[in-house]
Design a protein around this nucleic acid. Structure first.
Length: 262
DNA sequence: ATGCCGGGTGGAACCCGA
């Protein structure tokens, strides 16, 4: 079973590329981020024609996530639980479902807050969102079942994950607090699928539209799939679909696909 | 990268992304 994550930077602006990729690759399950539309504007029928069950957690203009599955889905959750004292969260950044394939696997799609600029409410929101994810993930791990938390984490985990580290020192994606929270999440017992299956430096998943970042390969690795031990044990390979960044009207992120022996 | 690009909104100029 192949599970994909892709920040598409507007599903409707990207529809031609996205549908072509799904036709060619036909992942069993995919999570999309930054769909940038409400549920009613999501191209649900187009994905249904390709054989997908569609779960959308949309929002006008910003954010928005979706989960697509060729198998039936159960136990759908939209939105990350709040912690005590948290204010309501209006931002659509979390979707979760159990995929009822040959063997069940729980798949979570996240669009973790960017957090820039530092020293603002946005950075505080990023860190508080990561605390919420940490607590919820701990609960999911306790099921001791195959679990994949995939998405745009907006965290550069290590110096090997960025072409030009100096340029990112003042950025929320590369702060010690952000990297520490990602490491703490991983240390609950997750395996970073790319690091487990490949691990070579330069496995970038994002290149800025500006300043020739793509032709100069000034990328960062921020789209990750974290695997529970039961999922890590059956990981076969991980593929970063770099070619998508070279298409007409590309997203600034490319798809990442993990194959599990399910 | 101070926003050089790109998307959305709304119908110009501004917000947001990473």
């Amino acid at each position: 079973m192949r599970i994909a994550t892709w920040n598409v930077n507007s599903v409707n602006a990207r529809l031609e590329n996205v549908l072509a990729w799904f036709e060619a690759e036909a992942p069993d399950v995919a999570v999309l981020q930054e769909i940038k539309c409400v549920d009613e504007k999501f191209p649900t029928e187009a994905f249904e024609r390709l054989g997908y069950n569609v779960v959308v957690h949309g929002q006008k203009t910003y954010n928005g996530v979706a989960l697509l599955s060729k198998h039936p889905v159960e136990d759908v959750r939209k939105g990350l639980p709040l912690l005590e004292g948290d204010a309501e969260d209006e931002q659509a950044r979390y979707v979760e479902a159990v995929i009822s394939g040959p063997k069940p696997v729980r798949v979570v799609g996240i669009y973790l807050p960017n957090g820039n600029p530092l020293g603002t409410e946005k950075f505080a929101y990023k860190l508080s969102w990561m605390r919420r994810l940490h607590e919820h993930a701990k609960g999911l791990l306790a099921f001791e079942e195959p679990l994949v938390i995939a998405g745009d984490y907006n965290v550069i985990p290590e110096v090997e994950d960025v072409a030009n580290p100096e340029a990112w020192l003042g950025d929320a994606l590369f702060q010690p607090e952000s990297r520490g929270a990602f490491r703490a999440l991983k240390n609950l017992g997750f395996s970073d699928a790319y690091m487990q299956a490949d691990g070579s430096p330069g496995g970038y998943t994002f290149w800025d539209y500006q300043a020739g970042a793509w032709p100069r390969n000034l990328g960062i690795r921020i789209d990750h799939l974290l695997l529970s031990p039961q999922a890590a044990d059956i990981l076969e390979d991980v593929t970063i679909h770099r070619d998508e960044r070279d298409k007409e009207k590309p997203s600034d992120h490319v798809p990442v696909v993990a194959r599990l022996a399910l």
